[in-house]
Design a protein around this nucleic acid. Structure first.
Lengths: 131, 131
DNA sequence: TATTGTTATACTCTATAACTATA
DNA sequence: TATAGTTATAGAGTATAACAATA
C-alpha cells in the first residue's frame, strides 16, 4: 500500500510541476534551500533522501537553469554553499503554491481530522526509521 | 513522507526476504497467486502495479526457479495461466510468515488502535486513486 | 480494432566504488 | 583516517513502442 500511495502522490506532483519544467527531486532541493537559505550538498542529501551522485546532477540542473548557485562554503573548503538565486526564490514560491494545491487534492478523500491523523501517524512511521 | 515511508518498508522487506533469494516483486506475484490460484500476467500486472515488461521478467525468474509455471489459459489462447508449483506454495507460506513479522516490526512504533487507523486511512488514500 | 504477451530502447533512481581535495 | 564533492558503472523500475498471435 505504501508503494501505491507513494506512486499516486509522486505521479500527481510530477504532473503538476511539469509546467515549471522541474521534477520532484528539484523541488525537494528548492524547498530545503527555501527553508534554510544555504546548505551544502551533504546537508541537501540528508534532507531529501537523495544520494551523492543524484544530488550532483540535481544541483547541476538547477545551476544550469539559473535557479541556484554553488558558492564556496566559508566554513569548509571542501564543501559548497548551495543557495537560491532570485529566479530560484520566485520558482520556489510558485512551486510551493502548486504543491500545496496538489497535497490538498490528494488528501481530499479524508476529512480534516483524518488528514491530521494520517499525517501525524505517517510522520511517526517515518521517524521510527532507526533501524 | 510517503517516499520515506515506502523506502523504509521496502528496505526492510527486501532485507528480510533475502534468505529466500526473492525480491519484493517476486513476493507480490507469489502473494497474488497464493490468493487466486491461477492468474494471467495481465491480472498479475493489475494486482502488483508492475508493467508488462517487468512482469515477463518476474515470471521468468519464478519459472526458472521452479516456483511457478506458465500453462496455456483455457479461456484465452493469447494468455497464460500462471500457477504456483508445490515448491512455490511452500515458499509462499514461508515468505508470508516473514512478511508478517516485518510488518509487525514496522508498525511497532504505533499502538494497536493506531495501526488499524493508519492502515485504514492509507487504504482510503490509495483507493482514492481515480485520477 | 483491441488485447496478451514478448522484446527492445531509454531514462530515472539507487547503490557502489574510485578519485581529489580537503578536514 | 574520514568527509565533500565528482565521476563512472551497473541493477532495478518505469514508460514507450513495435510486433505476433489471438480476441
Amino acid at each position: 500500500m505504501l508503494r501505491f500511495a507513494h506512486r499516486r502522490a509522486s505521479r500527481e506532483f510530477t504532473e503538476a510541476l511539469r509546467p515549471l519544467a522541474i521534477e520532484g527531486r528539484h523541488y525537494g532541493v528548492l524547498l530545503s534551500l527555501g527553508l534554510h537559505g544555504s546548505l551544502s550538498q551533504r546537508e541537501l542529501i540528508d534532507r531529501t533522501g537523495s544520494d551523492k551522485s543524484g544530488m550532483v546532477r540535481t544541483v547541476d540542473d538547477l545551476e544550469a537553469r539559473g535557479l541556484a548557485v554553488r558558492r564556496p562554503s566559508p566554513a569548509d573548503r571542501r564543501a559548497y554553499a548551495v543557495e537560491l538565486t532570485e529566479t530560484g526564490r520566485a520558482l520556489h514560491a510558485e512551486a510551493g503554491r502548486i504543491a500545496d494545491s496538489v497535497a490538498a487534492r490528494l488528501l481530499d478523500c479524508l476529512s480534516e481530522d483524518e488528514q491530521s491523523t494520517f499525517c501525524a501517524l505517517l510522520e511517526r512511521f517515518v521517524t521510527a526509521d532507526t533501524t
